[in-house]
């Protein structure tokens, strides 16, 4: 089956010392290609953990994640690493390299694809323009504001035209104009057939109506809204 499918996912953190914390349990869902899924839930509900599982950054305690029918969550590290080249992710805390410039941060995912530096820069500038970051291309990432950092992280996630895009609070710290730009970029990814999963608190994402499917995480379980 095309897209991302989760089957009875269960994630438990920290068994030693102290009690284990069940973050997710029995999460079964289908995230289709060309659709944008919105995941909401209270702080600590496990939204970020779910995105990390979908992106192959975490391994589930039980259950599996299937990408286009393949059980990627159970693959060995080398195979998962290769598969992750098809995944773009926006972390909640952006996770940029503060010593590098904005443009350098953005083109990082393209480096292993053996393209010329000029081509990489051109691709990076194109995405930065879509997110109104052209003027900041040469600025150090460590000097950016929260909103700029988050947009740079989104630019880095989409520059490689990923098949699967996970975005954790992508509209955080954005003014209305920039939030609209962010949603436009997400919609463009959906339009070219990518699986887009957005975890958000921001009511603007819900109000904008960009989501094709809305899920809510509560007590570790995913419920369709």
């Amino acid at each position: 089956m095309d897209g991302l499918v989760t089957r009875h996912l269960r994630l438990v953190f920290g068994a030693t010392p102290g009690p284990a914390r069940i973050v997710l349990q029995d999460v079964s869902a289908v995230f289709s290609r060309g659709a944008l899924a919105l995941v909401t839930g209270a702080t600590g509900a496990g939204k970020s953990s779910l995105l990390h599982l979908l992106a192959g950054l975490l391994r589930p305690t039980a259950g599996e994640v299937l990408a286009d029918g393949a059980p990627v969550s159970r693959w060995g590290a080398a195979h998962r690493d290769r598969w992750r080249r098809r995944v773009g992710i926006v972390f909640q805390s952006a996770n940029l390299f503060s010593e590098l410039s904005v443009l350098e941060n953005v083109i990082l995912p393209l480096v292993p694809r053996s393209r010329s530096l000029a081509a990489l820069r051109a691709a990076g500038r194109e995405v930065l323009a879509e997110l109104a970051l052209t003027d900041l291309a040469g600025a150090q990432a460590g000097q950016l504001s929260g909103g700029e950092r988050q947009r740079t992280a989104l630019a880095r996630a989409v520059v490689g035209r990923p098949d699967f895009l996970m975005a954790d609070e992508p509209t955080a710290h954005q003014d209305p104009a920039n939030a609209a730009r962010v949603l436009q970029v997400l919609a463009a990814c959906r339009a070219r057939g990518a699986v887009v999963v957005v975890a958000a608190h921001d009511p603007r994402v819900i109000v904008a109506g960009v989501a094709d499917r809305h899920w809510r995480l509560a007590a570790g379980r995913l419920v369709a809204e």
Binding site: R7, H8, R10, R59, P60, T61, A62, G63, E64, P71, R74, G76, A77
Partner: peptide
């Protein structure tokens, strides 16, 4: 199987 024991065994096998 995708049970917890099998997933843990896959990690250990690696």
């Amino acid at each position: 199987s995708a049970a917890a024991a099998q997933i843990a065994l896959e990690r250990r096998a690696e």
